[in-house]
């Protein structure tokens, strides 16, 4: 079963009497262990696509399915529950909770989903070890380096055992070397878990880390 299916997805914003088409009849299928780069310039609609796939935005038209869940049919409350359990996000600006430790930034995902504390804690410890951050588990987010914060953000995205991880511009704030390290880490963490990932970027140097690349221009996906 594909991790993500988007069929004829359209997103239109209204600005007064004008209509702005951010996403125009997008069709996309991402396999259950596939990593896809969504490449496009600023304003091309890649963030809109990512937001719709993650249940942060609802499409104006079209159908979105993540795993066996038809996301485009969900109301806001159901979308909240969907985000708790079925998708993981890695945000462009990382967005860790500054007054939580590295470990707590992971366990907070389990807390929001109402999972048992012990189970959540064990999973967080496991992920931190995999990410090479066990020794930083008790440090506040503000005490971590940029690279460490990015790794914690990746761990956080995996905490709810998602079917789909959505990664927004993971290398935009990093130099080339650090960006490559983060992409390498992303690929290592995601591949083999049965998790799909969509990585949004405008950096063509990072596309070879994923299984395939889909370009988006003016809201339209290019074949």
């Amino acid at each position: 079963m594909p991790a993500l299916v988007m069929e004829g997805v359209r997103k239109v914003y209204r600005s007064g009497s004008e209509e702005v088409v951010a996403l125009d009849h997008a069709d996309l299928v991402v396999g259950d262990d596939e990593m896809v780069t969504l490449l496009g310039p600023s304003g091309s609609g890649k963030t809109t696509l990512l937001s719709i796939a993650g249940g942060l935005l609802t499409p104006t038209e079209g159908r979105v399915v993540v795993g066996d869940q038809v996301v485009s049919d969900l109301d806001p409350r159901q979308l909240t529950a969907f985000r708790q359990r079925q998708v993981g996000f890695v945000f462009q600006s990382v967005n860790l909770v500054p007054f939580l430790t590295a470990r707590e930034n992971l366990t907070v995902v389990g807390e929001l989903a109402g999972r048992p504390r012990r189970e959540t804690g064990e999973q967080a410890d496991r992920l931190l070890e995999e990410l090479g951050l066990s020794h930083r588990a008790g440090n506040l987010a503000t005490e971590l380096s940029g690279g460490e914060r990015q790794r914690v953000a990746i761990g956080r995205a995996l905490m709810n055992d998602p079917k789909l991880v959505l990664v927004d511009e993971p290398t935009s704030a990093l130099d080339t070397k650090m960006g490559e390290a983060v992409m390498e880490l992303l690929r290592n963490e995601i591949t083999g878990r049965g998790i799909a990932a969509v990585v949004v970027t405008h950096d063509t140097r990072m596309t070879h880390y994923t299984d395939r690349t889909v370009e988006i221009v003016d809201g339209r996906l290019q074949a």
Binding site: R83, Q84, R85, N95, V109, L112, N160
Partner: peptide
């Protein structure tokens, strides 16, 4: 605002 947007994206309900 940014922190709450992140937490909401991670599944935190507004009421919480």
């Amino acid at each position: 605002t940014a922190l709450y947007a992140t937490l909401k994206a991670l599944g935190a309900p507004s009421g919480r």
